[in-house]
Design a protein around this nucleic acid. Structure first.
Length: 601
RNA sequence: GCCGAUGUAGCUCAGCUGGCAGAGCAAUGCUCCCGUAAAGCAUAGGCCGUCGGUUCAAUCCCGACCAUCGGCUCCA
């Protein structure tokens, strides 16, 4: 779509948001808060005594259509800011009034209002010329939500209604159909259908259990990860799941990360002693690790280091635990125990630039290997919000330097990134790569974090070529982010139809009748010895039914084995996505499958 | 954690205004021995998310809690 058309659509959506607000005011005397255009539609926040429910949406839509039909002219008016604030206060538009006051505090002199019929509110605009410009069939109110005023959970929660909007009914229908299709790719749905994983209440929320096929998928991803890291000059390290409180106090997690950490485990007695309520003799507190970095740093500190050893690139698939709020948990994309494909690069100041570049290249290579086009990935440079200094460790100078270096690295690699204030980690700025799930929600996967704080806190040093102690930098980076999240996005990306090298079952063999089962098993064994993952369906069912079930499991190849195959070296292959089968010699088939396995890029 | 919706068999879902809980698939057994998207018969499977309340009687009405889903906040 052209940029101009996009802008027009954005204006239409924004105007619709005002129309919805007008309807809400007419029907329920609601007080407006913010109401922007968003991707595919709009929303409007409002405060209202009545709790709006789903059953109210048709009525609101109807009122909106009435406003469209009234064809009210939308006019812009300007006011001196003091007068504007007064005006809004008189209307009891307390949220908009507060925003106007904020603008005033920032030194704004004038503010603009948009008026349509009896409805008038402060707004930057632009808007359509009149409400009648909108096609009544081109929008739909989709969902209700609560939202904190100004996005701060300390503030009051007000109500929000989302809508989707397009130029006409056809586009709207197309979009709704697309969403319906996308929902079929949902990893939570496919995880069940393909028997990959489940989350068990008895085990705990946000702690997924991987079934054999899911665990195989994980293993394949991890094997690839491992191989590529060795090729890229990394070494592996390994660390435990819990660490002494002192470690976390040193790292700063004890103070800066305590909202996301599980409370400590008291050590100094057994469970049995605790159950008997015996007194603890010597108590130590251990914490489940929310990050791997302090362990890697302790490995570094285990012996004196020389500049000749740098850079060190230490990687670990480390399982970490974070106590996420219940309402934030979601399938595999947001869990409480997850495995990061973590690595720490410890280097000197003059090596930083090169190392940052190498990591960016590695990230892009990994995405490409799993079929994610760079165009699908949103890149963010997450910076400190210098107004909220309590949230961050370290001095201004360090932040300025690291932010500058990271920005430069991203620019050098020609990344199309967006800068976001207030999104940095507590110990440094980061470059985040986010993928969209089937419903268009963004999830951070790769991250490259530039840390100048932990080296300080842990007093990391190396001896430079002048024989002096020097402080290294630490780059934290994850390519997948977490296996759980990345695999979730992989499942959705491929809609469960994984490329041959990633398929948990590559070849599904179906026996025509009882007499062929033995041969099928023999064939399967032969494939397995060639490292082709094979499964036989020997059920007492018709071929048609077994085909049907096999197709639902989405293996790349289905073989139907009967007399014909048993008495020759030919195989009958049905490729995924094809309704027609083909014939091929066994040898050629094996060569073909092995070729596909090696084809991963 | 907050706002809203939802919760019936392993899965997908029926179940009207309160009156003994239903189907298909899957499972198990038997029959059939079959060539590219559902063979036949039979059996088993339920604390209707949990706990309270109202009622002669609750899957159904009310309340609390738990979980899931969509948002908010937070985040890999």
């Amino acid at each position: 779509m052209s940029q101009q058309k996009n802008q027009q659509l954005e204006i239409l959506r924004h105007s619709l948001s005002h129309i919805m607000m007008q309807a809400l005011e007419r029907l329920y005397n609601a007080i407006p808060a913010v109401g922007p255009a968003i991707e595919n539609g709009f929303y409007h926040d409002f405060d209202c005594e009545r709790q709006i429910t789903e059953s109210d949406l048709p009525k609101i839509e109807e009122e909106m259509k009435k406003i469209i039909k009234e064809n009210l002219e939308i006019e812009k008016q300007e006011m001196e800011i003091g007068k504007g604030v007064e005006f809004l206060k008189n209307k009891n538009y307390r949220y908009t009034a507060e925003m106007a006051e904020d603008l005033k505090a920032e030194g704004e002199i004038k503010i603009s209002f948009y008026k349509q019929g009896e409805f008038i509110n402060m707004c930057k605009g632009p808007h359509l010329a009149s409400t009648g410009k909108i096609n009544s069939n081109s929008f739909k109110l989709t969902k209700l939500a609560g939202a904190y005023w100004k996005g701060d959970e300390k503030n009051k929660m007000i109500q929000r209604i989302y809508g989707v909007a397009f130029n006409d009914r056809k586009e709207l229908k197309k979009y709704l159909k697309m969403i319906e299709e996308a929902e079929k790719r949902d990893h939570r749905k496919l995880g069940k259908e393909l028997d990959l994983f489940h989350i068990d209440e008895k085990v705990g929320l946000g702690l997924p259990l991987w079934h054999p096929k899911g665990a195989m998928l994980w293993r394949l991803v991890e094997d690839f990860w491992h191989q590529e890291h060795l090729r890229n000059g990394y070494e592996l390290v390994k660390s435990p799941h819990i660490g002494n409180r002192i470690l976390w106090e040193t790292s700063g997690h004890w103070g800066f990360f305590n909202e996301s950490m599980y409370p400590p485990i008291e050590i100094g007695q057994t469970l049995k002693e605790k159950q008997k309520k015996q007194k603890v003799k010597e108590s130590e507190e251990y914490l489940l690790k929310p990050m791997n970095c302090p362990f890697h740093i302790q490995i570094y500190k285990n012996s004196p280091r020389s500049y000749k050893e740098l850079p060190m690139r230490w990687a670990e698939c480390g399982t970490v635990y974070r106590f996420e709020k219940k309402g934030e948990l979601s399938g595999l994309t947001r869990v409480r125990g997850f495995t990061q494909d973590d690595a720490h690069i410890i280097c000197s100041a003059d090596q930083v630039e090169n190392e940052l570049g190498r990591v960016i290249d590695f990230i892009l290579y990994i995405f490409k290997s799993f079929g994610f086009d760079i165009g699908l990935i949103n890149v963010y440079l997450s910076l400190r919000d210098s107004n909220k200094k309590g949230k961050y460790a370290g001095d201004d100078k360090g932040w300025e330097f690291t932010e500058k270096m990271l920005r430069k690295a991203a620019q050098n690699k020609r990344l199309n990134f967006i800068e976001e204030k207030g999104e940095a980690a507590f110990y440094g700025p980061k470059l985040d790569f986010k993928l969209k799930d089937c419903l268009g929600r963004e999830w951070q996967c790769s991250t490259l974090q530039f840390d100048f704080n932990l080296p300080e806190r842990f007093d990391m040093t190396f001896v430079n070529n002048k024989g002096e102690d020097e402080r290294p930098f630490v780059l934290h980076r994850a390519l997948f982010g977490s296996f759980e999240r990345f695999i979730a996005l992989l499942i959705e990306h491929y809609a469960g139809a994984f490329p041959v090298w990633l398929s948990p079952v590559q070849v599904k063999i179906i026996s025509v009748s009882e007499s062929h089962i033995e041969y099928c098993k023999k064939l399967a064994q032969e494939f397995k010895e060639k490292n082709i993952r094979t499964e036989v369906d020997e059920a007492n069912e018709t071929v048609g039914n077994k085909i049907r079930k096999a197709v639902q499991e989405k293996p790349p190849y289905i073989l139907v084995i009967g007399d014909k195959e048993m008495n020759s070296d030919r195989l009958n292959v049905r490729d995924r996505g094809q309704r027609e089968s083909r014939e091929i010699s066994k040898q050629d088939f094996i060569t073909e499958v092995l070729g596909k396995i090696n084809q991963k890029r």
